[in-house]
Each structure stands twice: as structure tokens, then as C-alpha cells.
Simulated assay, not measured.
Amino acid sequence: MKMNHVEGRKRGDVVLYALSTCVWCSKTKRLLDSLGVDYFYVDVDLLDGESRKEALREMDRWNPRRSFPTIVINNRVVVGFKEEEIKKALGL
């Protein structure tokens, strides 16, 4: 599965599972961008075949309910757009 990378200040491992049509996913990306954080993301709905299956398997490890956005920050999971929780997990 190919993930998109946004360069920024390293705050550990940050991975966002998103949907391209999800307003809350877009808000999460904008938040990470505004904080200048280095992160990886994948828009699961734009994947197909084995890439999509791989993304969903990986996401299931963190959020079996498969709700979006799911963000994994240094092995800590935040489900949904929760600005303060995200900042806290990033150490901000």
C-alpha cells in the first residue's frame, strides 16, 4: 500500500487513515499541516484491490469499527477529529 507523505517536524510516527470525501478527515489533514507535523496518510476510498485490503487490515489493528478519520500517533489511536487529543498525542 502506497501512503502519501507530508514533510514536517518529526513528532514520531504519525499515520492517518482517511476518506477523500470525509469533512473530518480533511480537517484533520489541515490541523496536521498547520502544526507543521511530518505524517503519512492514505485515502482508503481511493485504493482498490490488494492495496485497499492491506489498508483495511492495517486499520483494523487500530480501529476495528473502521470509522474515519483514524490517526495513529506513536502507537496511540485517536478516532475522529479531536483536536486537543491529537495535539496531546503529538506532545504539543
Results as ranks from 00 to 15, higher is better:
V42M: 00
K88A: 14
R66A: 09
F68D: 10
E7A: 13
Y41V: 03
F40C: 06
P69T: 02
G80Y: 02
T28F: 03
A89G: 07
D33S: 08
N75M: 06
S34F: 02
W24Q: 15
V15G: 10
R9F: 05
T21L: 13
L31P: 05
F81E: 10
G91F: 13
I73P: 01
C25I: 11
G36A: 09
L16F: 00
E85Y: 01
E7Q: 15
R61L: 08
Y39I: 07
R61C: 01
V79H: 02
T28Y: 05
Y39H: 04
V78K: 03
L35G: 11
E85N: 07
W24F: 15
G49R: 11
A89S: 10
S34N: 12
K27S: 14
K87N: 12
Y39F: 11
P69Y: 03
M1W: 05
V79F: 01
I73G: 14
R57D: 09
Y17K: 04
K2Q: 14
S67F: 11
L90Y: 05
K82I: 00
R30K: 14
D13Q: 02
A18K: 15
F40N: 14
L90D: 07
F40D: 13
D33P: 04
L31R: 03
L19F: 09
L35C: 09
R52W: 04
I71N: 03
L31N: 08
V23R: 12
G12S: 11
D48F: 00
L32W: 03
S51T: 04
L46T: 11
K2W: 01
I86L: 04
K29E: 12
R52V: 07
D33V: 07
K2F: 06
F40V: 04
R57P: 07
W62V: 06
E58D: 11
V44G: 09
R61E: 08
N63C: 02
I73N: 04
T70V: 12
N4M: 14
I71H: 01
K88E: 11
G49V: 08
V14D: 08
K27N: 06
K29M: 12
F81M: 06
R65L: 12
G8R: 12
Y17E: 02
Y17P: 06
L32S: 10
P64N: 10
I71A: 09
E84L: 08
G80A: 06
H5F: 00
V23A: 15
G49D: 01
E83G: 10
